[in-house]
Amino acid sequence: MSDGLLHGVVYSVLIVSVVLTATAMALWFERKFAARMQTRLGPTIVGPIGLLQPVADLLKLLQKEDIVPDNADAAIFNLVPPLAALAALGAAAVVPFSPSVVASDLDVGVLYVLAIGAVTVLPIFGAGWSSNNKLALLGGMRAVAQSISYEVPLLLSAMVPVILSGSLRLGTIVQMQADHHWFVVWPFFIGLPAFGIFMLAMLAEANRIPFDIPEAESELVAGVTTEYTGMKFALFYMAEYVHTIVASAVGAALFLGGWDGPFFPGLHWMVLKTLLLFTAVYWVRWSLLRFRSDQLMGLCWKWLVPMGVLLVGAAATWVVVFP
């Protein structure tokens, strides 16, 4: 019992600190990556090749005045930023970074990830509601509609590897892929589209372009975070990146074989795959324009949900035919 507890604590601390460091790096990476796409240089002055830019940003945000607007619901307003960060970090608990590096390989890991993912909408809605700002309220409204809708295809596409491997435990799903094939490789006609739907739905859950309508800054200024200053904004900002990183990690575990790969240790492969997915997310973000909210709903309910249902059926048939 105490061994398990020790293991949990040690790995939790380890993974949280690694993910937070990775987040800081991700901030830098995204700025450099975006700048390169736009024929700019990005941060160059602060630290070598601008590496210390996220540190400077954080130090600055720490020193900023903390403002709670008049007539805002102060309790909720102050509560939701840490909640957002926690909800985003929580999902990292069950991600298997290697056969041994995992904070807690739950029996129902996939269910846990989805459940925690569903919580992330609450802070966003709370922020929109409590700010006493019409733009934030509109943003919160959009976020709720979007997140609840995209839960459905997310769930359906996550069901595919679960059915194929016969387990809800992430470790087992990865092991299954390591023993046979990655699900995007075989059966690719089920795994590949399911992977696509999963990533799209994850983008939508993380409010990334082209699905970033809750904070569409050309329409809603800064959406739900319009009224947030200093560290509270930093928590939201960080939560967004943590969410993207964790989503990439979960996607890699569910479909890309997780830590499975030749030559290098499993941890390297997991980090590499996560980074790859993460880069893809930013590539999309800095290339595409934004959907309108009704088109976003249309995409979800008209395309992703029916496809998800079909894929779940196909996966079930596949398992029955080739057990």
């Binding site: 975006a34 736009q38 372009i209 970033d212 050309s218 973000r285 800095w286 290339s287 324009l289």
Partner: peptide, 21 residues
């Protein structure tokens, strides 16, 4: 116009900066 459609933190700003170039 791309900024309006795509946002300052996304694809819109990419078009925008290319146009300015």
């Amino acid at each position: 116009f791309a900024l309006d459609l795509g946002g300052a933190l996304g694809g819109g700003s990419t078009v925008f900066i290319h146009c300015f170039r």
